[in-house]
Design a protein around this nucleic acid. Structure first.
Length: 597
RNA sequence: GGCUCCGUAGUUUAAUGGAUAGAACGAGAGAUUCCGGUUCUCUUGGUGGGGGUUCGAUUCCCUCCGGGGCUACCA
C-alpha cells in the first residue's frame, strides 16, 4: 500500500474481509459514510444490510465487525456502535501517512488520461444580440463540466453551435438597413454584439408600432403580424440570403462579424474557450440526407404534402416534423445532422453533453430518440445538461422589455464592486494599478461564477449580486480569501526558513486536523461524483466545506506558536495541501484564486 | 388536456434510501484574534397536504395543491 493510499477503498476491502471471515459470506455492496460529527470516529459502516448475512441484530453485527477490525486492521484504532451504525476511528499515524501521500502527489486529484473522450457543447448563442445572465450560467456550467471530465481522465472537446442564420439575424439586419445610417462599431464606439442587439430592439419597436397602426386601421392582429412592413423586409432578407443574394450575404457576414468580435471579448472575460465552432449556416442542410435515409428505412414517414415526420407516439411522445413540404430543414433536422457530423469529426468521443436551458428538454428527448432509431449507439451517451432560469432579486428578465441583464454589464459591475471592496480593505496598497485590476477581475468573476455554480443546475435559481461578492458566507470570495490567507501563512513560514518535512513520525493528532485530512482525501471521489451527475455544484460545495473545515482548524490550533517542530511543520504541510486542493478544485470550476487579496 | 422539472427555516440553499434534515445570510448572545480585514461557538427556525413501499423516505411510487417549462412546418 502506497503512502498515497485511499483510506476508503482500503477500509472497504477490510470490511469485506471481515464479513467473509465472520459470516462465511462475501458482501458485495455495503455503505460506508462519513460519521456524523456528534459521534466519535470518521467512517461509519451502515450495518442494517449486513444483518441478512450475519443473521444477527444490527447492533450485534456492528460489534462483531468492529471487534474484528480492531484486532485485524492497522487502519482502525477504535470503534463505537450506535444502533446499527458502526463508527470507526482511523489511527492517527494512518492519517499522517495519508497526508504524506497527498502532499507527495503533485497531481493529486487529477486522474491519468483514460483514453476516453467526450464532447461538451455550451454557449451556443444566437447572433442577433449580446449574451445575458442566462448565458453566463450556461457558459460557466459547460466550462466547469468540461473541467470536471478532464480532471477524471477524459479528453474533452469543447464546442458550440452558433445560430448564425434565420429570421432573428435578419430582423437586426432589416432594422439596420432602415435606420442604421451605416453605423458601425467603430463609428458608434459600441461593442459589435451590442450594436447588433440595438437594432434587434429597434426592429421590435418598429414592428410593434407598425402592427398597432395596421390593427387600428382594422386589420386582424394575426394578419398584421405578417403584413407589418418591417417584418416583410426581414422575411425578404431571409429569402434573399437563402438564394445567396450577394449584397444580403455580405451584410449578413458584416453584421455577424461584429457580433463575433463582441462575443470574443465577452468569452475572454468569462474565461471560457472552445476547441471548435460549428455554424448553423454550414450544417443546417446536413441532416436532410440522414432524414431521407430514414424514410427509406421506414423509420420516418412522408405525409401527402411531401413533409417528413417521425412518429414517436409509441414512446409516449408526439409526431414531429423533420422536413417541411418544400424539402427544407427544421431545427431538429439540423441538430440530427450536427450530432452525426460531430461524431465523424471526433470518432473517439463516447458521448456529447449539450448545455442548453430546460425549456428545450422535450427537443433533446426527441433528438436522442431519433438518433437511437437511426441506429447510432452513441445516442445512449448523449446528455442534455439542462439548467433552470436565473432570476434576480429585482424581478424577472424579459428581453423584449429591456429588463434583460447584459452579461458584459454584469461582469463589469461585479469587478467594479470587487475593486471598491479591495481598495476599502486597503491590504493591497503596495500593489500596482495593474495588479489591482487583475485581482478585482479575479474576485468579481470568482464571485459570479461560484454563485452560479454552487446551485444544482436543474434548479431555477436566484442570483443575488450583493450576497455573491461578500467575503463571508457561502461565496467564492470567502474561498478565495481562505486560500490567500493560507498562502500568506506559507510565505511567512518560508521567510522564517520553516516548512521542512520532518513530521512523518507523528503519532497523535487533534480532531480538527483529522477532519481536514479526511476532507482532503474526499476530493477525487467528489470529482467522480460531480462527473457522474454532471454537477459542478458538487465540487463547489466540497471546496466550501474544505475551506470551512480548515478555518475551524485554523481557529483552534496554533501554528507558529507551536514549539514542537514536527507538529508545526505538519500543520504547515496540512495548510499547503488545503490551499492546493482549493486552488485545483476552483480551477476545475473555472475560478482563479489569488495569492493575496 | 398530455409530458416534464421544481417545491426543504424569514431568505438563499445541502443531503448515492440511513443516525436528532446540514449550511449560509438575517436576528440574539458569547469566545478568540499566533498570520490578514478574521474566525469560531451557542441560540432562533424547516421537508406543501394525504396515502403507499421499507427495519429506515427530503430521496422511490400514487394522489392532490402550488410554481416553471415544453406541447411551432421558429431557432
Amino acid at each position: 500500500m502506497s503512502a498515497g493510499m485511499n483510506i476508503d477503498s482500503a477500509l472497504r476491502e477490510e470490511i469485506q474481509k471481515a464479513t467473509t471471515v465472520l459470516f462465511n459470506q462475501t458482501i458485495e455492496s455495503f455503505q460506508v459514510q462519513p460519521t456524523n460529527p456528534e459521534f466519535e470516529g470518521s467512517h461509519t459502516l451502515v450495518c442494517f444490510p449486513l444483518t441478512r448475512i450475519s443473521r444477527k441484530g444490527p447492533e450485534e453485527t456492528a460489534r462483531l465487525v468492529g471487534d474484528y477490525l480492531l484486532a485485524n486492521s492497522r487502519l482502525v484504532s477504535s470503534f463505537n456502535v450506535v444502533k446499527g451504525f458502526l463508527n470507526l476511528s482511523i489511527a492517527d499515524r494512518v492519517w499522517v501517512e495519508v497526508l504524506q501521500g497527498v502532499v507527495n502527489d503533485t497531481r493529486y486529484g487529477v486522474s491519468a488520461r483514460s483514453g476516453k473522450e467526450v464532447m461538451v457543447e455550451y454557449s451556443s448563442p444566437n447572433t442577433n444580440k449580446p449574451l445575458h445572465l442566462g448565458h453566463l450560467r450556461n457558459n460557466f456550467l459547460g466550462y466547469a463540466v468540461a473541467g470536471i471530465y478532464e480532471a477524471v481522465g477524459y479528453t474533452v472537446h469543447k464546442v458550440q453551435i452558433i445560430n448564425d442564420r434565420g429570421i432573428h439575424i435578419c430582423k437586426s439586419m432589416a432594422a439596420w438597413q432602415l435606420s442604421g445610417e451605416n453605423e458601425t462599431p467603430e463609428s458608434s464606439g459600441l461593442k459589435g454584439d451590442h450594436l447588433v442587439g440595438k437594432y434587434y430592439v429597434e426592429f421590435d419597436k418598429r414592428y410593434k408600432a407598425e402592427m398597432k397602426q395596421l390593427v387600428d386601421q382594422g386589420m386582424p392582429e394575426a394578419e398584421a403580424e405578417k403584413q407589418a412592413p418591417v417584418m416583410l423586409h426581414a422575411v425578404d432578407l431571409l429569402r434573399k440570403w437563402e438564394n445567396k443574394d450577394a449584397d444580403t450575404v455580405a451584410l449578413w457576414k458584416k453584421m455577424n462579424g461584429w457580433v463575433y468580435d463582441g462575443f470574443a471579448a465577452t468569452y475572454k472575460r468569462m474565461g471560457v474557450d472552445f476547441e471548435k465552432l460549428y455554424y448553423e449556416s454550414a450544417t443546417y442542410l446536413l441532416g436532410r440526407d440522414e432524414v431521407l435515409k430514414g424514410v427509406e428505412q421506414g423509420i420516418f414517414f412522408r405525409k401527402e404534402d411531401g413533409s417528413v415526420w417521425v412518429d414517436l407516439t409509441a414512446d409516449g411522445l408526439d409526431q414531429k416534423v423533420l422536413l417541411r413540404a418544400d424539402g427544407t430543414s427544421v431545427y431538429m433536422t439540423q441538430d440530427i445532422g450536427t450530432a452525426i457530423l460531430r461524431f465523424r469529426d471526433f470518432p473517439k468521443i463516447e458521448g456529447q453533453v449539450y448545455t442548453v436551458g430546460n425549456e428545450q428538454e422535450y427537443h433533446f428527448k426527441v433528438l436522442f430518440l431519433i438518433l437511437k432509431k437511426l441506429g447510432y449507439a452513441w445516442a445512449e451517451k448523449c446528455f442534455h445538461l439542462s439548467y433552470g432560469m436565473v432570476d434576480l432579486p429585482t424581478g424577472k428578465m424579459k428581453s423584449r422589455e429591456g429588463t434583460v441583464v447584459d452579461a458584459d454589464d454584469l461582469m463589469a459591475e461585479m469587478v467594479a464592486e470587487a475593486e471598491k471592496q479591495t481598495r476599502e480593505l486597503g491590504k493591497i496598497e503596495d500593489a500596482s494599478e495593474e495588479q489591482v485590476r487583475e485581482l478585482s477581475e479575479m474576485i468579481g468573476l470568482g464571485a459570479l461564477k461560484y454563485f452560479l455554480l454552487k446551485v444544482d443546475p436543474k434548479k431555477r435559481m436566484l442570483f443575488d449580486p450583493n450576497e455573491s461578492i461578500q467575503l463571508q458566507g457561502h461565496t467564492g470570495p470567502f474561498i478565495q480569501y481562505t486560500h490567500a490567507r493560507i498562502r500568506a501563512l506559507l510565505r511567512k513560514a518560508e521567510s522564517m526558513g520553516l516548512a521542512s518535512a520532518g513530521w512523518s513520525g507523528l503519532e497523535t493528532l487533534d480532531a480538527s486536523e483529522r477532519e481536514v485530512i479526511a476532507l482532503l482525501t474526499a476530493y477525487p471521489q467528489k470529482l467522480r461524483e460531480a462527473a457522474a451527475g454532471y454537477s459542478p455544484a458538487v465540487v463547489a460545495n466540497y471546496v466550501y466545506e474544505l475551506a470551512k473545515s480548515y478555518n475551524q482548524f485554523y481557529q483552534t490550533i496554533p501554528i507558529f506558536q507551536e514549539t514542537d517542530g514536527a507538529r508545526r511543520d505538519f500543520r504547515l504541510a496540512l495548510s499547503r495541501a488545503v490551499a492546493d486542493v482549493i486552488k485545483k478544485g476552483m480551477r476545475v470550476l473555472g475560478i482563479a484564486v489569488p495569492e493575496r487579496m
